[in-house]
Design a protein around this nucleic acid. Sequence first.
DNA 1: AATGAATGAGGGTTCATTCAT
DNA 2: GATGAATGAACCCTCATTCAT
Lengths: 233, 233, 233, 233
Amino acid sequence: MRGRLFHVLSKVAERGEDNSARRERRKEARPGELLDAALQLFVEKGFAATRSEEVAARAGVSKGTLFLYFPSKEELFKAVVRENISGRFAEWTQEFEEFEGSTSEMVRYCMRVWWERIGATRASGITKLMISEASNFPELAAFYRQEVIRPGTELMRRILLRGIERGEFRDLDLDYAVFSIVAPMVFLIMAKHSLGACVAQDTPLDPERYLDAQIDTLLLGLCVRPDAKGARA
Amino acid sequence: MRGRLFHVLSKVAERGEDNSARRERRKEARPGELLDAALQLFVEKGFAATRSEEVAARAGVSKGTLFLYFPSKEELFKAVVRENISGRFAEWTQEFEEFEGSTSEMVRYCMRVWWERIGATRASGITKLMISEASNFPELAAFYRQEVIRPGTELMRRILLRGIERGEFRDLDLDYAVFSIVAPMVFLIMAKHSLGACVAQDTPLDPERYLDAQIDTLLLGLCVRPDAKGARA
Amino acid sequence: MRGRLFHVLSKVAERGEDNSARRERRKEARPGELLDAALQLFVEKGFAATRSEEVAARAGVSKGTLFLYFPSKEELFKAVVRENISGRFAEWTQEFEEFEGSTSEMVRYCMRVWWERIGATRASGITKLMISEASNFPELAAFYRQEVIRPGTELMRRILLRGIERGEFRDLDLDYAVFSIVAPMVFLIMAKHSLGACVAQDTPLDPERYLDAQIDTLLLGLCVRPDAKGARA
Amino acid sequence: MRGRLFHVLSKVAERGEDNSARRERRKEARPGELLDAALQLFVEKGFAATRSEEVAARAGVSKGTLFLYFPSKEELFKAVVRENISGRFAEWTQEFEEFEGSTSEMVRYCMRVWWERIGATRASGITKLMISEASNFPELAAFYRQEVIRPGTELMRRILLRGIERGEFRDLDLDYAVFSIVAPMVFLIMAKHSLGACVAQDTPLDPERYLDAQIDTLLLGLCVRPDAKGARA
DNA sequence: AATGAATGAGGGTTCATTCAT
DNA sequence: GATGAATGAACCCTCATTCAT
């Protein structure tokens, strides 16, 4: 009996908190904790290379607990993707339709806000995830295309169109100009999640400075006249 | 210069020939065929999700044969990466040092040539691979940074510097401006290998048109005056 | 004799009442409800394929409660078996020792009463269970042999012996003749619990008609003269 | 290297034969060996309680090898059932249609032949299996009904009908009279595979003697006159 | 050199059992 | 007593790797 008590206590100690505390944030908190842990690991190591026990461990629970909340690793993956793509685009579309400044300001705002709300958060991992795993999860790729890519592209298209119609932007190849906005963002995510600084490990990429540089060049490239109002002061 | 380009292109062509031709030069070609098959599958499905038997099958040999040439799946992966990032940068650096046109032309040439020699070939999959698997193969990531990212960055840095020094480009934040060239290329690779399934399945992205659009905007964004010589006719 | 029979039948009836009635006498009835649920499921799916949570659910309690009453699934199984083979043989032996009709009548009565008291009730599942699980529960099989098979065989042996001694039955191979009585009963149980799904799904076997046919043939086969008194009117 | 050699040799010794011998009866023999092992274990312990590693071990191979030949434990189970129900009924039906003796002789012959060809062989385990697992494998139960029960029943029905039409047998309830033939056979299988002697462990049931006793009683019960020709001398 | 049958460690998933509430 | 969240041993199955042929 002494043995069992010791065993239990050492397990508690291992976790760094007592059981009652863990019980308290019980069922409601679990799925979120698991999804967070899963997102981190999937982004870090890929779907196949992530072991479900590891996800559970990072969420501070045992292997079996994971399967109380998600019926399989694949469903966990899907839940991770869905969880992080709550319908933000409706909100954003609204926000941009009410925007009153110049379109250059709008583009700058758009990219900065993207960084704040997505790029700098866990959610950015989803993009890396989808790119790495798209072909292993065709239905999910379709879902992502439908829920993220399409509305995102549409939003930026509208912004560019506004710029052209207002005479701010030059006559762009609209379908492909959107990639001038998207590419720097995707690249930033990749830099963040994969190859580190992408330049050298010791001098990590500063996202703010990176974004400013990209936006400056981008706006100069988009605008009719390089001295457009939206250019940084 | 033509000579070198031809050499590179013919190596690319070599990999594309039909199966019947392959059978004839059995033994010598085996490792190459395996590397090709492996590259395709690793890019498509990721390292962990690719089964070695499948690699062997696609290369037209049996499972056992694969391990005759590569001691393990991991070594195969490393060989795939190493094989496909052969140091062409020395070659390219020289090529660009001898370049005589405007720096805008140089940037345009650089991106086009990259597309022809890397982007459009199987070798582009390596970028996708490294982005997906970097954290599972840290030493390979370091190798890639060392062999590809660093010299590539350095190459573009020099080009940009040339543009600034010659008064063609504005006063750029050099360390970050290189990403304005890299990001569109990385994005194109991603679009080709994964997001292609994402961006739009029915109307796939046209690389030439994409590149033109990106280069136009980029150069306008980099140049002191928007009517720079390098702008497309 | 009537009294005893009534008692047995009323116990059988007890188990068949509806759920609402059950709720009212909560605690005292729990173990019985669990045993009933377990018997049903074990018979239906086998020991290993029955999940203890399912047993609990069918008994209307939670998983934990099951283990409040039975220390393990295996103990539950043993309890199910023990509970359902209560030694009625002493009772029956006496009943038959006081029997006053012909031995043919006795055999017929014996099989009919067995059907009423065992075959038609939940208790019959135990036979199916033991046949299915005997090798996984050797000590239980021994117990079953001891408590059911041996006394049952002995009982029928005596009946047959009585028939022979009274000149009603021919000179039987006593040790094996008992199986002529047992086999049709065992078969009926199997038909009811498993082969029922096999013999014919659309026209299920009618137990009464089945028993009549078996008994008729059996008695004709046992008796010295085919026009024995016990033959059905 | 010494270590490895020792390891290999001791493994060989364990198996009691050298590797080359094992390699020789290779692929062709494996499925049969595995099916045999599986039949034994499924019959002995039930489907769920049988571990696939155990099946492999009994067949003298490793866990993984089992799955080279059968894609899953369930498919193995199905294969076991199918393997042991090759279409014997066509053959038998033919055999009985050409039978020239009395119908009593036919019944006796039928049951003896069943014992020789099925009852005494591994195949008899299938019956026990199906009875134990029918509800866990509904499609398989349907298959078994279709392939075994139905033709078997039909065969015996015809025999009985012949007896009635030739005036040998009394006017039987045909649909249920077949069970008088089946029940003793099913019971024998159960006795063999489950509860041992069903009487006492120490005096195992003698199948020949059992069958003779059952057939004698059965025929006396079926025939118009008890001195039918088919009765044992 | 090439094959592919065989292996067995590894990882996903289930479920009997525990225990804080 | 009753609950059900949590646990982790055990089991099915995969697949990188080996090796006799």
